[in-house]
Computed example of a mutant assay.
Amino acid sequence: MVDADLVVEVTGAVATVVIRNPGRRNAMTPAMWRRLPVLLDGLESDPAVRVVVLTGADGTFCAGADLGDLDELLAAGDGSIAVAAEERLATFAKPTVAAVRGACVGGGCQLAVACDLRIAAADARFGVPPARLGLVYPAPTTHRLARLIGPAAAKHLLFTGELVAAERALRIGLVDEVLPDADLAARVDGLTGVIAERSQLSVAAAKEIVDGRADEERMAWWHGQVRVSGEAREGVAAFHERRAPRFGWTPPAAP
């Protein structure tokens, strides 16, 4: 039997992180929660990787945290390794896409919500089960869910612990698209391919701004990057010449 793990597969500019825990519907173990930020650090520093896809093995996204190791998660509260992994995913500098099949529950839903985009197969099911287990969902996780789908929809999920189908998840804004299972992989490939071809300067800046992490000083830095990088000149030239732009910006190395 394959051990529980996170597996990274890189194809071109797209890295796919696969949640794998055979026999436990891909539940996240403490070791997997700890490993995720380490993997993300490596992918963020790799200039060849422009987009990251998070998905689950064998037709299931993730059934949540492995409750066999509940005590470790409970003792830490909002400082848990699960919250730390979620926060690292949410602040990852490059675009992230959750490709969801089957169960996306608890910690799995937590990870999907921390991604920038969520594309679901028609068989996907979403749930936030703390009220069924006597747990308190972490504050950062609860706030992120409420910002995404609104207070009323978040309360419904949290109060009831019910699973919702993919079409309802689409209606409340929990996912961005729902497709037949057979079409999901092609759609994710197409979407990530488009994002990878765009100006990474524009994409990275947009992510920071939308997420509320770009203050006045950071915005001045971004506008400076536009001036010195030549990205805008290349984009406008390509538009007039009716050709694909040749964008080349990569994040400057940290001082």
Rank of each mutant, 00 (worst) to 15 (best):
I19F: 02
A4M: 08
R233Y: 10
R25L: 15
A220I: 07
R171G: 05
V203A: 06
P140C: 13
V53R: 03
R227N: 07
G23W: 12
L179E: 10
E44C: 08
V128L: 15
L179D: 03
G150I: 11
R35G: 10
A152S: 13
V113F: 01
L39Y: 14
T29G: 05
A63I: 12
T16V: 01
V228M: 04
D189E: 14
L157K: 03
E9I: 04
A76W: 07
V17E: 00
E234H: 05
S199K: 06
E86T: 12
T250A: 10
R20A: 15
R187G: 07
I149E: 10
P255R: 12
R243A: 09
V188C: 05
V10D: 09
V105Y: 02
W221P: 00
R218L: 13
A254S: 13
L179M: 05
K155T: 11
P251L: 02
P129M: 10
L36F: 05
G59L: 14
K207D: 01
K207A: 06
V105C: 06
A90C: 12
S202W: 03
P255T: 05
N26H: 11
D176L: 01
A93Q: 10
L158D: 06
N21T: 04
V100W: 00
A244D: 10
P140F: 10
G127L: 04
A254Q: 12
R88T: 09
A146L: 02
E167K: 11
D181V: 15
A244K: 10
L73E: 14
F247W: 02
A65D: 06
L158W: 01
D41A: 14
I19H: 00
I19W: 00
F92S: 01
S80Q: 07
P245L: 01
V18A: 09
L111S: 00
G12Q: 03
D46F: 02
Y137D: 12
H223Q: 13
A120E: 02
F61S: 11
A114E: 06
L179P: 04
K94Y: 12
L133H: 05
G161I: 10
I195N: 01
A4V: 06
N21Q: 08
K207M: 07
R118Q: 08
A169H: 05
T192L: 02
G77T: 08
P255Q: 07
A15H: 00
D215N: 14
R34T: 07
D71C: 01
L179K: 07
T91W: 04
R233E: 12
E241R: 14
F126I: 01
L67D: 13
D3L: 14
S45M: 13
